[in-house]
Design a binder for these strands. Structure first.
Lengths: 192, 192, 192, 192
DNA sequence: CATGAATGAGGCTTCATTCAT
DNA sequence: AATGAATGAAGCCTCATTCAT
């Protein structure tokens, strides 16, 4: 029984509007006035909740990134077997990206453009720690290729974004079997 | 002995300036006046070569995308063996992204934000046809997993962008051995 | 034993904050919200005590001007000798300006910019009546030049503001001997 | 036969409009849009000539201050007799303030509010050097009281502003005889 | 071809003031 | 009496684009 304050509701509406509009138009092409309109507040009200436009974007980024990692490690236990754990995380991430399309697109745009403060970006980085730790164990156990986490990430998690993009554009449909196929590619890419 | 017209030179300077500035600031945060200044040209002159800012971006995208595919299929022969051909193309692309960083970053930004016309984006797509054809042959010959080209692309070529990004941010160095490791991940991801 | 009401205290805090902030930033660069904050009060509360921002400034002006004339004629007796009376008043004013720097600066700003209603300004004028009367007597007694009070004021009292300003800016120090020198200039300027 | 460029004309119109409006409303109550309107240009045009509002004010200040000192030392020769030279300068200044009312009011407002950069203010200071030098000679020759230039200025030049103000407000008229009376007060204030 | 000057439209942000509590 | 939240109006400034030369 969460009591959600009126303020919290408004803040959330603003963040949601920001995400939606930035997804569709990009950060700099999204005026504060439109964000306000979509959140049903006056433009001036935004500045009660956020210092300025940049702050609004940073906060949205941090919020979404955090919800992302919450999903990513759902039901994951550090003592799981390496492959089992990896598949769980991978599927979690894929599910997140395919279900929470808005959030995923927003993250993708944040990570590929100079719209987010370096500081906030750093903040978002630490979230993947458990996955990296899992890979380390995998390497020790001789199950995972002895590659840097950047390469491992590049060939397992990062590709999901591409699939999301193509689905968004209606070029293909990512259903359950497609997901399994994609997972097999991911695991094959890094397994020893 | 190509005679390069004065006009051509100016057009190129404008495209180059656009790419550079958009990379650093994003499309909407790059004023025409700055592009003009960097190209040593009056703002008004831009409009002699391009219809408007959007057109300038589109043209830059098409130009870069085309130079990209020129590189991608350098020394590739349609009758090569599948793995040999794939490795050549993959390495070409990786080399392009790591050498022509400016161009690669620009493409990445174009592909991850709504800054480019859908029409121009379509234009850029057809360039990958030979790679897709190669994969088709690979599938027929039982060398490549029977996956959609989207998945194959997602787990082989797309990851290179991530490596470029991380290198750009100074988080890791992609040298020759790292490249080989990355390639092995790519091939393992899709080979049968 | 004055019992100072809670209301009075708040009103005074607001006036004080106004004076301080206007001194440092000017009238139009001083937001009501900052005045409220400095007076430890909600912005809305200001409007319980003052009609609007202009009214707040006017009241502050009147208040300060009145405290100014209280000082100016301290220990002055209408039947004093002309020179003795003049020196007393002059020194009172100088002391006020050098001790109550905040108030003096505020008056200076009010008198040199269009921030105060003409009406309130008129209100502040009558305070100098006793000095003008003294000068009249001085003229009758042949001790003071037969000039309009404006000229007499301009060359005796008004210059003190300049000395205050220069001291404020750290350009010079106005100590007791300097004050005596200044007084001698003032008296020489108007004595017959 | 000065050829005045079109740009120069526009710049001057902007400065003039600024002075006029700031005189009537104060710096912060004068919107750029009104300045533009009075100068018959678009608001955006202002920014071709001035970096921002502050710069506009600073430039106006410097310009006016400089025209002020040009007037102040008209026909003054450094080898004049001290009293003769002083009277010339004093009358020049008085004439300037009474004739160029707009400029004089503007300077007064600049010098009494925080609207001008400290840097620009410093710039305006050096203009009085010849007067200070004259006073120094006067002191050496035993003609002028041995006071700091601040006091000398306070009781001779500074009072003129007050007379200007009162005339502006219609409280008195400063005609030729009044000017002579005022001068006599000024000289008596500092002569030995 | 080329340009520097000009601008209308629009974006971000602030602020005096009000309103619901 | 007191307030925190809310906002419409307005201010500063930028920029894509055009025009006169």
């Amino acid at each position: 029984m969460k009591a959600v304050s009126k303020s919290q509701i408004k803040r959330d509406a603003l963040l949601k509007a920001t995400i939606c509009l930035v997804n569709n138009n990009g950060f700099h092409a999204t005026p504060m006035s439109k964000i306000a309109k979509m959140a049903n507040v006056s433009p001036a009200t935004i500045y009660l909740y956020f210092k300025n436009k940049q702050d609004l974007a940073n906060q949205a980024y941090i919020e979404v990134k955090s919800s992302f990692s919450n999903c990513a490690f759902k039901d994951f236990e550090p003592n799981m077997g390496v492959e089992e754990g990896f598949k769980k995380i991978w599927m979690n991430i894929a599910t997140f990206k395919l279900k929470e399309v808005d959030h995923a697109m927003f993250l993708s745009q944040c990570d590929n453009t100079p719209m987010i403060d370096e500081e906030s970006r750093q903040e978002g980085l630490k979230h993947l720690q458990p996955l990296i730790a899992l890979w380390e164990r995998g390497k020790e156990e001789g199950l995972v290729k002895p590659f840097s986490p950047f390469i491992l990430y590049a060939f397992t998690v990062y590709p999901i974004s591409f699939l999301l993009n193509t689905e968004m554009k209606g070029w293909c449909k990512v259903d359950k079997p497609a997901l399994e196929r994609a997972y097999s590619a991911a695991w094959d890419a890094i397994k020893l």
